Simulated scan of single mutants.
Amino acid sequence: MIPVVLIAIDLAAISLLTFGLYFPRHRRRDLVVAFLGVNVGVLAVSMVLGSSTIGAGLGLGLFGVLSIIRLRSDEIAQHEVAYYFAALALGLIAGLSAAGTTISPLAIALMALILLVLFVGDHPNLYGRYRQQTIRLDQAFLDEGQLADHLGLLLGARIRSVQVRELDLVNDTTLVDVRFQTSIAGSLRHEELPLDRIAR
């Protein structure tokens, strides 16, 4: 009975994480499948390992290997990495807790804590006016002060940080990573902006 309850708790938690937090905020459908698959897969494997003589140590080692694998076909943003590991952690906590004779209040509290941290940390109102953008300018800027002034006028925002990624004096272009603060917290989040923007 305990494993069934924990499976239900895990499914409720991953559903809240995916359909209540991630998708309404970021609208990326392919990662919905990834989060659900990772969570349920980790839950199943950890329940089997936790109930066998292999032990949880090997399982944790396997998940450690999994955590360093990065699929080169599609790059994911840092906030998506956080959701990815949250989905993994929820399944791992629920799966390993299923080996006990009672439902651990600590396990439930930790699962709730994961959801709470992502709810607060990824909330649109938390530093909602701050943006990050990679921009390719059709002018080579040697002076960083002049570059910051130009970006401030271009973006209509207060420039917080500028890092020159590429300076091409032959083609007269500058590729910069800029962090800036807008006057009003808009609905368009920085991760939804295009990767490269050409200013002309």
Rank of each mutant, 00 (worst) to 15 (best):
P24R: 04
P24I: 03
P24Q: 03
H26C: 01
H26S: 01
R27C: 03
R27N: 05
R27K: 13
R28Y: 05
R28C: 04
R29D: 01
R29V: 07
D30A: 04
V32T: 06
V33A: 10
A34F: 04
F35V: 01
F35M: 00
F35E: 03
L36I: 14
L36V: 14
G37H: 06
V38E: 05
V38M: 08
N39D: 12
V40L: 15
V40M: 14
V40Q: 04
V42F: 02
V42N: 03
L43A: 02
A44K: 03
A44Q: 02
V45K: 00
V45G: 00
S46T: 15
S46A: 13
M47R: 09
V48C: 00
V48Q: 00
L49Q: 06
L49D: 04
S51C: 00
T53K: 03
T53Y: 12
I54W: 13
I54E: 01
I54C: 00
G55A: 07
L58I: 15
L58K: 09
L58C: 10
L58H: 08
G59C: 07
G59E: 06
L60Q: 05
G61Y: 11
G61R: 09
L62N: 07
F63G: 01
F63E: 09
F63C: 01
G64Q: 09
V65L: 06
V65W: 07
V65M: 03
L66W: 07
S67K: 06
I69C: 01
R70E: 08
R70A: 08
S73M: 11
D74L: 11
E75R: 08
E75I: 09
E75W: 07
I76V: 14
A77D: 14
A77L: 12
Q78R: 08
Q78N: 11
E80L: 04
E80A: 03
E80Q: 11
E80D: 13
V81P: 02
V81Q: 08
Y84H: 10
Y84I: 02
Y84E: 05
Y84C: 03
F85P: 00
F85V: 02
A86M: 04
A86D: 05
A87E: 05
A87V: 05
L88G: 01
L88Q: 07
A89S: 15
L90Y: 06
L90E: 08
G91H: 07
L92F: 12
I93E: 06
A94M: 13
A94N: 13
G95S: 10
G95D: 11
L96E: 08
L96F: 15
L96K: 03
L96N: 05
S97Y: 10
S97F: 12
A98H: 09
A98S: 15
G100D: 14
G100K: 04
T101V: 14
T101H: 14
T102I: 14
T102N: 14
I103D: 06
S104K: 12
L106G: 05
A107M: 12
A107N: 12
I108H: 00
I108W: 03
A109E: 11
A109S: 14
A109T: 14
A109W: 15
L110F: 10
A112P: 04
A112C: 11
L113A: 15
L116R: 08
L116F: 15
V117W: 10
F119A: 15
F119H: 03
F119V: 11
